[in-house]
Design a protein around this nucleic acid. Structure first.
Lengths: 145, 145
DNA sequence: GTAGCTGCAAACGATTTGCACCCCT
DNA sequence: AGGGGTGCAAATCGTTTGCAGCTAC
């Protein structure tokens, strides 16, 4: 358990209190598993990772819990063209690299994009919120195989 | 029928020949409807738009046809967090504005992003392909209501 | 104590598939 | 003529929901 993870869990517990969400063992396990994952897992994948440690946990609870977390802004649902939804713990603003072959999603930071001038006329569209860049490509692993 | 649309259809027919896809009335209608749409419709929406003009057309055919088009690179499946997939005819590289309230997807061009330097270290990930920016916000219509 | 959670099972919506017939090439 | 394409209906997959019992607060 890294210090970063500890910090995330501490913050999670606090956020639960703030949002009046009960801190159940299931929620804690689901959040922890998601925070430890680097691969933006689907609900199904989280279920498979957790059922050893918590055999009574049901897939429905994962779906419900993730939906609750997303609603309260603790977790992001990641946009992909896949049929299964993928999730990540909300962290600092970041962007995604998606390998078109193995579909693996990796994160990267790109703070300077916030300073880049958007095309003019965009402000006519409405209120601009967060920018999210997705770069598609082929990851190193897939290039070597 | 605008000249642009005519041109798109001409190109579409040629692409069908190149990819050895049979040019059926259904495929032509589905492609045309999608090319005329500005709103990145779902399969269901296309179905509703087409069943007046072509009452025998089935929803399955739309799904199958769209999948075929995506496979052959004539159509893009657009990333969203919605349960329904959305589609667009492949055009010049462009990016998306998504209204967080009404979920409407609009296009915008941003050619200069290609010239912007990516964060260093990204090339270590693998081969970089296309960049896709999604900006979330609130569109003018939703701000006024 | 009680409202919010959970687990179960059944329902649901989007998409896919097997099959027989059709029609583009 | 023949194989790809279509329409129909049934199956599948991811996800959601109703309900009864449980538990964190």
């Amino acid at each position: 358990m890294t210090p970063i993870l500890k910090e995330q869990i501490k913050k999670f517990k606090q956020q639960c209190r703030e949002h009046e969400l009960r801190l159940t063992p299931q929620r804690l396990e689901i959040f922890t598993a998601l925070a430890m994952s680097e691969d933006h897992p689907s609900a199904e994948q989280l279920y498979q990772r957790l059922c050893k440690k918590m055999p009574t946990l049901s897939l429905d609870t994962i779906y419900r819990t993730l939906a609750t977390f997303v609603q309260h802004g603790l977790v992001n649902r990641v946009d992909t063209v896949e049929s299964q939804a993928r999730f990540e713990v909300v962290q600092a603003q970041h962007h995604h690299l998606i390998c078109e072959k193995c579909k693996k999603i990796s994160d990267f930071q790109w703070p300077s994009i916030e300073c880049i001038e958007l095309p003019e006329g965009l402000s006519r569209w409405g209120k601009i919120g967060r920018k999210n860049v997705v770069i598609y490509g082929i990851c190193k692993d897939c290039m070597n195989s």
